[in-house]
Amino acid sequence: MKIDFANLGRAYEEHREEFEKVSLDVMRSARYILGAETERFEQNLSSFTGNKYALGCSSGTDALLLALMAMGIRAGDEIITTPFTFIATAETIACLGAKPIFVDIDEDTYNIDASKIEQAITKNTKAIMPVSLYGQMPDMDEINAIAEKYDLAVIEDAAQSFGAIYKGKKSCNVSTFGCTSFFPAKPLGCFGDGGAVFATNEEDYEKMKAMRVHGQVKRYTHHYIGMGGRLDNLQAAILDVKLATYENDISRRQAVAESYSNKISDNAAKPLVKDDRTSVWAQYTIRVKERDKVQKALMQKGIPTAVHYPIPMHLQKCFSYLGYTLGDFPVSEKCAQEVMSLPMNPYLEEAEIDYITTNLNTII
């Protein structure tokens, strides 16, 4: 049996007629950027998350940049974040000349350890940027309380958690800003690059709306230094089709995750979702010893795996100027050596899950 890791082809087939119709509609309109499709999708994003201020943009990375730019982040500022994440989180901070300040993670959830944040705050700290890794939000109440105490913003990097719930509130509606990605392999993915940024007030929303079009408030009138960060109408139309049934996709992902958790032996460390929140399972990530050996054995059985992420940010060459060394964030370093993501998508069948878990249990 050969397993498809993300099953993007199945996602297309499930909505083929709708995808082709809306794609043709966009092409026939000859209006490709910032049109009716994008506006409609933004309205539906607001309805879905409960956040009034939703803005489509060109990628999850650009969503983070827009939030930071709206805050006026610049050289000398510090942003607290996690070293156990995709590079875009810290990269966007560095792109603006600011300094990423890393805080280690909670070993059970892989999210930033809120109990360690306060000790990292200095007079230069401007924001906390927690990552909702693998589909589950971190301890947002604790993080928001710290931010309020020190008058800081909170920017949720929700690239992997769109649709997740924390104490009754949706991801992207729990902090000052929420930023998500619609990269094709995300739980809600388009057919190219795309993202969205959410704000809690109209002023930030209007500023980011201008900044995604080079700071333009009307044609050739620029109030801000901005960027070319627009979401195109084709991607917006495709995303809108998928958003209409996205809750069902989340339920199917959760069913796959539950089946995995029931069938994988205790020789692997299985993911933990806290009782007061849900996960959209962007990844189903376990921890195993001798990971390379396990991955190789699974691949021989036609079972693909992935490592998210093998090198923590503080050990990446591009961040060597920050002065961190091996041992600074031991939990992140340990997890980076052991994490392994199994195939995860809404289309995995029980026979495929049985095949994956039976082979995994034999190997570990």
Rank of each mutant, 00 (worst) to 15 (best):
residue 168 G to C: 02
residue 119 Q to V: 13
residue 197 V to P: 09
residue 154 V to Q: 00
residue 192 G to V: 12
residue 121 I to Y: 05
residue 189 G to H: 09
residue 166 Y to M: 05
residue 117 I to A: 05
residue 155 I to S: 04
residue 125 T to E: 03
residue 149 K to H: 11
residue 198 F to H: 05
residue 117 I to L: 09
residue 138 P to G: 06
residue 183 F to K: 12
residue 182 F to V: 09
residue 128 I to F: 03
residue 192 G to T: 10
residue 181 S to A: 12
residue 185 A to N: 12
residue 175 S to V: 10
residue 136 Q to N: 00
residue 158 A to W: 05
residue 195 G to M: 07
residue 176 T to P: 06
residue 171 S to K: 05
residue 141 D to H: 07
residue 153 A to W: 09
residue 185 A to G: 00
residue 186 K to Q: 14
residue 164 A to H: 05
residue 120 A to H: 04
residue 170 K to W: 02
residue 173 N to E: 03
residue 156 E to I: 11
residue 116 K to H: 11
residue 160 Q to D: 15
residue 181 S to H: 09
residue 121 I to V: 14
residue 182 F to P: 11
residue 181 S to R: 10
residue 195 G to N: 09
residue 116 K to R: 15
residue 181 S to W: 08
residue 203 E to Q: 12
residue 149 K to M: 10
residue 185 A to T: 15
residue 173 N to K: 05
residue 187 P to A: 07
residue 163 G to A: 00
residue 124 N to L: 01
residue 151 D to Q: 15
residue 147 A to C: 08
residue 129 M to T: 02
residue 190 C to K: 02
residue 153 A to P: 04
residue 182 F to I: 08
residue 154 V to W: 01
residue 130 P to H: 03
residue 191 F to P: 00
residue 120 A to R: 09
residue 126 K to T: 07
residue 167 K to V: 05
residue 118 E to N: 08
residue 197 V to Y: 13
residue 164 A to G: 12
residue 124 N to V: 00
residue 120 A to C: 01
residue 170 K to C: 13
residue 125 T to L: 02
residue 115 S to I: 00
residue 185 A to P: 02
residue 119 Q to G: 02
residue 164 A to T: 02
residue 120 A to K: 13
residue 171 S to L: 03
residue 151 D to N: 15
residue 169 K to S: 14
residue 124 N to E: 14
residue 190 C to T: 14
residue 140 M to Q: 02
residue 144 N to H: 03
residue 196 A to F: 04
residue 196 A to K: 02
residue 148 E to I: 10
residue 140 M to E: 13
residue 201 N to E: 11
residue 116 K to S: 12
residue 137 M to Q: 15
residue 126 K to M: 09
residue 189 G to M: 10
residue 134 Y to I: 07
residue 130 P to F: 03
residue 138 P to K: 04
residue 172 C to R: 05
residue 190 C to A: 14
residue 187 P to K: 03
residue 199 A to K: 01
residue 141 D to T: 06
residue 141 D to C: 04
residue 117 I to N: 08
residue 199 A to H: 03
residue 120 A to E: 06
residue 131 V to C: 12
residue 126 K to V: 12
residue 200 T to K: 14
residue 139 D to I: 01
residue 163 G to C: 01
residue 125 T to A: 01
residue 137 M to V: 04
residue 131 V to T: 15
residue 172 C to D: 10
residue 119 Q to L: 07
residue 137 M to N: 06
residue 163 G to E: 02
residue 184 P to N: 07
residue 150 Y to M: 00
residue 165 I to Y: 10
residue 156 E to G: 01
residue 141 D to L: 07
residue 189 G to K: 10
residue 128 I to Y: 04
residue 122 T to Y: 02
residue 145 A to N: 06
residue 204 D to P: 00
residue 198 F to V: 06
residue 133 L to Q: 04
residue 197 V to T: 13
residue 117 I to R: 06
residue 193 D to S: 13
residue 186 K to L: 08
residue 204 D to N: 15
residue 177 F to T: 08
residue 126 K to S: 03
residue 194 G to K: 05
residue 196 A to W: 08
residue 179 C to M: 05
residue 115 S to T: 13
residue 201 N to Q: 08
residue 147 A to T: 07
residue 179 C to T: 14
residue 176 T to H: 12
residue 119 Q to T: 05
residue 149 K to N: 11
residue 179 C to R: 00
residue 165 I to G: 06
residue 156 E to A: 09
residue 198 F to E: 03
residue 128 I to P: 02
residue 133 L to K: 13
residue 149 K to P: 10
residue 118 E to Y: 07
residue 150 Y to Q: 00
